[in-house]
Write a protein that binds this DNA or RNA. Structure first.
Lengths: 154, 154
DNA sequence: CCAATTCTTGACCAAAAAGGTCAGGAATGC
DNA sequence: GCATTCCTGACCTTTTTGGTCAAGAATTGG
């Protein structure tokens, strides 16, 4: 399991756009540059974000992209779904070995576990907004996950 | 993001072995059959589980595989790590566009989010044991995730 | 000791997904 | 009308997934 480049890139883009919210639209080329993403790839990701209704696009010389809503109203979940579809979409029914019935062995005691995991992830994604991302304390790339300790009870 | 076949298969195998714990070793061919997994693929997965110390193998005519520990002492996290490595191993430092410094844009406010997610998933995996999997109420493949509501506070 | 059984190892392969590129066209603002 | 920017969709390469295969090395029952 991993974070794909699309997810990472889309998150960077949305974060940058959030910072520019209320100002002029940002052309994709500038986004590519500032977020360190291949220029031609950026457009592709922005298209998905636009189709999901998360950003607006404007053509012409003063054109570019802008958030369609305030940063506080956009969740990470929406961003992830826009570029990657639903999380753990089709666990059940895959890997059924050709037989088309659910073959999670052992009377399907496994699938509830995947479903909970999926719910857990979805819920976390939903709890993070772009506004929250901006307010995040940067910290270097090795900081400990503080609140995690709380959650785990340790 | 998705559950790979290796993870799903490994979980099925371990669940089946947990059910047979204390009895005779189960040959891989029988595991393949009962868990609906390609026979040649099963061996490959079992090798990883053995190298991780989760199962024991015995050759010869009465040979096969068996759990190396009681089901209550094996977590889903151990199984997943055995076949798939660490969850979200290297988010930071990837997608840096060639520049070898961490380029999570915007002062790296993004990486803590991935790290928390990784921790959340790891923690969930750690909380599920094989014994727990066996005790799971099967339910059909669409049951609601009950305890999730508790966690979310809703 | 022999033969059947089972695991072991590592190479190999095909299909899919990920990651990225490109070219031609259509709006838009100046 | 011309530069700028987005739009569309095809295309490509690399990596990962998912799976196969063959030769060999233990082990056990007979």
């Amino acid at each position: 399991m991993r974070i794909t480049s699309s997810i990472e890139y889309a998150t960077r883009l949305m974060t940058t756009l959030a910072r520019e919210h209320g100002k002029a639209p940002v052309p994709s080329e500038r986004l590519a540059e500032s977020d360190n993403i291949p220029a031609d790839y950026v457009s592709q990701i922005l298209v998905k974000l636009r189709r999901a209704g998360l950003v607006d696009s404007h053509r012409g010389s003063t054109g570019g992209y802008s958030l369609s809503r305030p940063p506080s109203e956009v969740t990470l979940g929406q961003v992830v779904r826009a570029v990657d579809g639903d999380v753990f979409e089709d666990v059940c029914g895959k890997y059924d070995g050709g037989t088309k019935d659910c073959r999670h062995q052992s009377g399907c005691t496994i699938s509830p576990v995947w479903r909970r995991l999926s719910g857990l992830i979805t819920q976390y994604f939903e709890s993070v907004t772009l506004a929250g991302l901006l307010a995040e304390t940067p910290g270097e790339c090795g900081a400990a996950p503080e609140w995690l300790e709380k959650l785990s009870g340790r």
